[in-house]
Design a protein around this nucleic acid. Sequence first.
DNA 1: TGATAATCGAGACGGTACGTCCGGTCTTGAC
DNA 2: GTCAAGACCGGACGTACCGTCTCGATTATCA
Lengths: 201, 201, 201, 201
Amino acid sequence: MNTKPAARPGRPRDEATHRAILRAANRLLHEAGYGGFSIEGVALRAGVAKTSIYRRWPSKGALLLDLYMEGLAPATLEPSGKKVRQAFAAYLNQTVERLKDAGWSNTLRSLVAEAQNDPALARLVRDKVIEPRREDGRRLLEHGMKTGEIRRNVDIDITLDFVFGAIWYRLLLGHAAVDEAFARRATAELFKRIGSDHAVP
Amino acid sequence: MNTKPAARPGRPRDEATHRAILRAANRLLHEAGYGGFSIEGVALRAGVAKTSIYRRWPSKGALLLDLYMEGLAPATLEPSGKKVRQAFAAYLNQTVERLKDAGWSNTLRSLVAEAQNDPALARLVRDKVIEPRREDGRRLLEHGMKTGEIRRNVDIDITLDFVFGAIWYRLLLGHAAVDEAFARRATAELFKRIGSDHAVP
Amino acid sequence: MNTKPAARPGRPRDEATHRAILRAANRLLHEAGYGGFSIEGVALRAGVAKTSIYRRWPSKGALLLDLYMEGLAPATLEPSGKKVRQAFAAYLNQTVERLKDAGWSNTLRSLVAEAQNDPALARLVRDKVIEPRREDGRRLLEHGMKTGEIRRNVDIDITLDFVFGAIWYRLLLGHAAVDEAFARRATAELFKRIGSDHAVP
Amino acid sequence: MNTKPAARPGRPRDEATHRAILRAANRLLHEAGYGGFSIEGVALRAGVAKTSIYRRWPSKGALLLDLYMEGLAPATLEPSGKKVRQAFAAYLNQTVERLKDAGWSNTLRSLVAEAQNDPALARLVRDKVIEPRREDGRRLLEHGMKTGEIRRNVDIDITLDFVFGAIWYRLLLGHAAVDEAFARRATAELFKRIGSDHAVP
DNA sequence: TGATAATCGAGACGGTACGTCCGGTCTTGAC
DNA sequence: GTCAAGACCGGACGTACCGTCTCGATTATCA
């Protein structure tokens, strides 16, 4: 059994180049934000030819999306034995922690900005960024309904719009910080609405 | 008492030019979206010199903001005798109605995208777009608390983040439509627990 | 008998404005040369409206020409009792002296540069700047022929092309200075064979 | 032995693009003169991006200079066995012939006009246009002095100023044509002054 | 071992738009 | 009718990036 992909003919892609691009992109996004983020700038900083970027990513947005995927690990939203409320609180706290990194928050903000331009990217963002989180949330809520932590008459979609929406809203419009206080209050308010009376001791 | 503005020296700005720019900008935004929206394109379509645009608006974003301000009228969110729930429902329906216009929704989406670039614009957007709506909402909720329609323990800020956030979230990420169904379900969900038990007969 | 021009209706032109424009133009030409010379710049420096310049001069070139005419006085080239050779030497020395002023030399250089653009100006330059000098020179040479200082077989036009040409050539191409040494050597060379053998003792 | 130039990295410049630019520039200069000569216009006519022009020439003037260098061939001024007088006459006739082409004369006139703006260009014009011709002339005159065709007391610099000056003077100020009659009369007048008595039979 | 092929860097290519400058004209209210 | 002020349309400037392309050189697989 061979885990290696079928070796293509020709010179293989250089892993180092790949990493250099992602690192440079992250750095540029961190320092200059969406406005200062250009393929040309990334290539320059990475010491890489523009071609080497376009060979891997068809557009600026695709690179941004990969930047997101690369750094994804932390935030999880799963019914992992914990109480539903605790799982939500943990997710929000991880998110808050993650967004403290300017590179990361700029990546997300740029991704949305770029998607306003680029329908293909918009679809990818929905499929890779938005839906997986919603799916996690949906499963968690349904789990909570079974355990009795969540009331049965909750409108799951709208509830997910409320909680994820609040995060994006604060992130993109910037009228208030996405911080620990937000995580705490959002969780509290969420469960004030959706928690079963008897489930919250 | 003089209502006329203190006549500035020099040739006054041409109102027709002003309107032509806004109209052309709207049209372009309607047809080509954020990606196809350029000062040059607006100037061309309006039959106006680029300088005439830059004289009025320092940046693309400032023009977008004015485009928003111009078309503002419809959506209101006031405790105008009606029940709080009805006021919210009316606001969401007006918003839904408004966003059916591609020009208008592109204006809002572009405004947010552009603001990711431009901190000065971001501040203006918060002051002119975000905060006024939040303030309306805040007043309405407080009014509802007095009348007993809204429970006293509601976290107003977070609640506003939930409901406005959901709108922006759907608008910008596009995973679901901002339509009548959304308005209905969001209102319902909002009042499921936010409303005092005895206030909704 | 009235020397005053027939009084036109309306507010008379302001002499001070006129002078302010010329002074500012000269200053700008002195400091920034042809490249930095713009009607807009002159208006700004003179504290005058652009209109007030265009009312008086139809184009940049016309203003430059007037700048030349204003400062004309010094250089004369007349058979004023002196020997022809002395008259020429005096003319060249006056010219050299005049051109030491950067404003003046820039005026002349700009006038020629501008005339390459503007046939109407080119004609004016010929009529007001070139021909009068040539006419003076022609009269002087003819006078010299009568007195025997200048040989009869001299081609006057070509001779004038040689001597005035040399000045413009040095002024515009800048390969060598238009200075006292030039004046001396040019006069000497001019009279080496142009002068009758017996006329120069 | 390798005559190939050390191949620079990257895609080599396209010779066709280069030629298209020069051809378009020449055409534009021919048709519209200095006033109508713009980088933008050249790019449009050549079907070339503006950047492709700026990549090669840092300024309008640099392009004009290359236009001059490209079309240089014809005029020679060398002591090629001929008599000095004949060499001068030939040079002037070649120059006259060359200047009949509006493209060529506009190139020279524009070059001088532009150089009034641009000290760097002025220096290049002196080095590439003015001095080589003067150097040819200087060698020719010195050669003539050795053969006895030119008198020993001639001031070479001033003589060159006279004859080249006359050409530029007529070209730039336009008070008289640079034509065959001019060539003939200028040669005659020149040798009336500088020719040794015994050398002109 | 040598042909084939995809990679690498570098950088040229045609484009689009940027934001600015200046040209020359027009339009105010005040004088 | 002039004045200062300043708006108007238009053309060009020089720059930044876009995404594509063409080079010579390098590094792999496959015959």
